[in-house]
């Protein structure tokens, strides 16, 4: 019980510290902006640990963060193997292929307003569908290996990307297109010099959505069949054996991978669309 009390006290103290920090000039600095959420996250872990110890919660229901950390430390090779299978071979190639295909399709239908008017509503609708449902079918087609995982990711990523890129290609202002016309610019020149750069903010918006979808797709697909490794496989088998510390270890890896992928996309976005009002503070 005392562990729980201690944890609660730490949490309250940290919260008070955060309240004070948020009101102080420190909060305006970059350091303060990173510090406050970090303190919050850290105290959440302390609270969790205290809760598990203080109430004596069984590890098959909720393992303590320290137990999870210990598990991570002892099973690094296995976690790496799962990560490589699911993220490096499944999610990332699928993400790249799906986004690339959406980009090519968007440019290909760019010259046909007819196709755009036909494809856009359908694309919008399909983008809202639970496409994860295709996972079992694609696993049936492409087998248990990483290829089927990548295929699921391609399909999941394709439609949100397509919708965003097509919208982006129409985002340039009419005045700027007219200017291009007065200079006698060709279709290709207008596309490369005006419309593609103007579409970038939309493309990155799509890429951010796609980066989280990619991980979901790769992991779900493993529930329908996989070799005897991979994050989805490990999670479903360990859950069956009530090895929840291993499950949480995989979740930690997934969270890290997801945040990393998202962060990379956001960094490239900041670098390539520095000129956009949303990036200029």
């Amino acid at each position: 019980m005392s562990a729980l009390l201690f944890a609660l006290l730490v949490w309250l103290a940290a919260w008070a510290l955060n309240v004070w920090l948020a009101g102080s000039p420190v909060a305006k600095t970059r350091f303060g902006k990173a510090l406050v959420p970090l303190i919050f996250g850290a105290t959440l872990l302390v609270l969790w640990e205290g809760l598990v110890r203080g109430l004596g919660i069984a590890p098959v229901i909720l393992p303590a963060p320290s137990a999870i950390a210990a598990k991570i430390a002892t099973s690094l090779p296995m976690l790496w193997q799962d990560f490589a299978q699911t993220i490096l071979k499944g999610a990332i190639p699928g993400f790249l292929i799906g986004s690339g295909a959406a980009f090519l399709t968007a440019v290909a239908i760019d010259r046909s307003p007819f196709l755009q008017r036909g494809l856009l509503p359908i694309g919008n609708f399909v983008a809202a569908l639970p496409i994860v449902g295709l996972a079992p079918i694609l696993v049936m087609w492409f087998g248990f290996g990483w290829e089927s995982k990548a295929a699921v990711v391609v399909v999941m990523v394709f439609f949100p990307m397509l919708v965003n890129i097509v919208a982006g290609l129409q985002a340039s202002e009419r005045m700027q297109r007219d200017l291009m016309a007065t200079w006698g610019a060709s279709y290709l020149q207008t596309l490369v010099k005006l419309r593609l750069p103007a579409a970038l903010p939309f493309v990155f918006n799509g890429l951010k959505i796609a980066s989280t979808l990619a991980l979901i797709g790769a992991i779900v697909a493993e529930f329908f069949g996989s070799p005897t490794f991979g994050m989805g496989f490990r999670i479903s088998t360990e859950v069956g054996r009530l090895g929840l510390d291993m499950v949480w270890a995989e979740i930690a890896v997934a969270a890290l991978a997801g945040s990393l992928l998202y962060g990379i996309v956001a960094l490239i976005e900041r670098w390539m669309t520095f000129w956009h009002p949303s990036q200029r503070h």
Binding site: A22, I216, I235, V239, V247, W248, I251, A255, L261
Partner: peptide, 28 residues
């Protein structure tokens, strides 16, 4: 303001965690 500074970043990170990883566990 504290909520904004402490919670908002984690709300964003929460979405980058593939929920499907949590699903089987939540159920068991």
């Amino acid at each position: 303001r504290v909520m904004d500074m402490s919670v908002m970043p984690w709300a964003i990170i929460s979405q980058t965690i593939p929920i499907v990883a949590l699903a089987p566990m939540i159920i068991t």
